[in-house]
Amino acid sequence: MEIESQLLGMAESFLFVAGEEGLTLAQLAALLDRNEDQANEIMTALQDGYDNNLKRGITLKRYGGSFRLVTKSELAEEIKKMLENPKPSTFTQAALEVLAIIAYKQPVTRVEIDDLRGVKSERALHSLTGKGFVEEVGRMDGPGRPILYGTTDFFLDRFGLASLKELPPLSLEEEQDTEDPDLFMTKFQEAFSIQGEGGNDV
């Protein structure tokens, strides 16, 4: 269908107001008074308009099922310079280890994380939960019904992933290889040092 300029403007406005939460295709369809197929065409046209115009510094991405307006990856270095500050990295080594384990082995309990790392993970887990990267996703059947943890849509957003299926492969030959924390973390950091080049600074 031919996309009316007004529809593109409306969609852009809705996405701007939605901010970091973004909008699902169903929400956009309802707001634009169109069916989901039509709304998807509008999103495609909007993204094409951004990507094909060098004067625009933003584009449209779909993260975790929601559409969001984001800055273009080509401008990552310029944006990084603007945001640079002397504060330490968002993640401690312990937090990064815990996040890696949860990302690839979820749903997982704290005890399982502790066993893999060989040390207590409660503090790092609390930090990741507080920052919105990790959340409780249920409870395991069994004694004490321990809490199961998984990653959030915010995690997908910050690492530039549309879904968990896009997690970079760790290239581990066998599942038991992930029982080696050093190997697991080395593979995780290598994978995300490549993934993170698109400007998703964490």
Rank of each mutant, 00 (worst) to 15 (best):
M1A: 05
K131E: 14
S171E: 15
S73E: 15
E136Y: 02
L69F: 03
G9Y: 04
L164P: 01
L75I: 03
R117L: 15
P143V: 15
V70H: 02
E74G: 13
F184S: 03
Q38G: 11
L7Q: 09
E174C: 00
E112Q: 14
D177G: 02
P88K: 08
G132H: 07
I113A: 03
E84K: 06
L125Y: 07
V17M: 05
F133E: 03
G198E: 09
A162L: 05
A39L: 13
F184A: 03
F133G: 04
G130P: 04
E21Q: 13
F14P: 01
L161M: 11
G65N: 10
N53S: 14
I113T: 08
A103M: 04
E175S: 04
A18R: 10
G22Q: 08
A45D: 13
D180Q: 05
E173V: 08
M140V: 10
T59H: 04
A29M: 12
P143E: 14
D114Y: 02
E78S: 04
V111L: 10
L46A: 13
L167K: 09
K120Q: 08
G138W: 11
V70L: 03
K87W: 03
A76V: 05
M185G: 01
Q47R: 15
D141Y: 11
A124M: 09
G49D: 11
E20H: 06
L164H: 09
D180H: 06
M185Y: 10
L60W: 10
K105R: 14
S89M: 02
A94T: 05
V111Q: 13
V111M: 03
V111D: 10
T90P: 00
S193H: 04
L99I: 07
V137Y: 02
E122N: 09
D141I: 12
T186G: 03
D48V: 05
T109L: 07
I113C: 13
Y149G: 05
T59C: 07
M43I: 08
G19V: 01
A124R: 07
I58T: 13
L125M: 10
L25G: 07
L32E: 12
M10W: 08
V108R: 05
R117V: 13
L183E: 02
A26W: 05
G196T: 11
N40E: 15
A162K: 15
L15Y: 04
E197T: 12
L25K: 13
I194M: 02
F188G: 00
Q189K: 14
L31G: 03
T24W: 08
L46I: 12
G138C: 09
R62T: 04
L161W: 12
D182N: 06
